[in-house]
Design a protein around this nucleic acid. Sequence first.
DNA 1: ATGACTAAGCGTCTTAGA
Length: 278
Amino acid sequence: MRIATWNVNSIRTRKGRVIDFLQNHDIDVLAMQEIKCKTEQFPFEEFEEAGYEVIAHGLNQWNGVAFASRLPIEDAVEGFENMPGFGKPAEDGTLPLEARALGATIEGVRLWSLYVPNGRELAHPHYTYKLEWLKALREDTAARRESHPEEPIALMGDFNIAPLDIDIWDPEFFVGKTHTSQPERDAFNAFLEDGMLDVTRELGIEGYTYWDYQQLRFPRNEGMRIDFVLGNPEFFELVSAAEIARDERKGDGPSDHVPVIVELDTETSLDDDMPMIF
DNA sequence: ATGACTAAGCGTCTTAGA
């Protein structure tokens, strides 16, 4: 089974490129972030024609997460336990929940498509929201591992954190900004301390996953590594290969992020590769 | 070439991205 995660930065603008990517890279499951549309605005038909079932969770023009899959999708859930909200409080004082998390089980693997809040500025309420959001995600993941001890789990998506200085072209540029602050890095590392594994890092894969549209960032290779697949040991055991699809930043109309691909040796793919011996 | 930001809304500017 080949799975991938990609911040597509508007699925309506990018649908052609995304479907081409699925076909060219033989992807079974794609976790998407920043679909930038309401659920009903998702271009479901194009994906169905290409052989993919889609579940989407979008509330407005911001954020939005989805899965496209050639394999059956089970137990889909929007958001996670105690996920904080952001924005204008409702009458009862609660903050509106955003479309940043979608969970689903495929081939017995629990997958999440996650778009971690940006944070905006260190002094902005969005930054506090980012840290609280990650804390709640960590707790939800720990609880799931407790209740489903054998289950492979992967947190896939745009974490909006560059965990190491090598994950950005110029650490100095980010002093006083979000994405590299110690509290954000601590929040990311907390998942690793809990035993989650950063799949591309563990496999020694180098490179950025994001380049700003401005300032010739891509031609100059001034990027950031902020998109990750974090798997529990049960998931990592299945991993046979991974790749950052850097070429997806090239050409006409790219997203500012590129896909991260992970290949798994699940029973289905083993069966496919297994010689027929009786 | 990978080339000087992009996307969506009710919109000709604002918000958000990072």
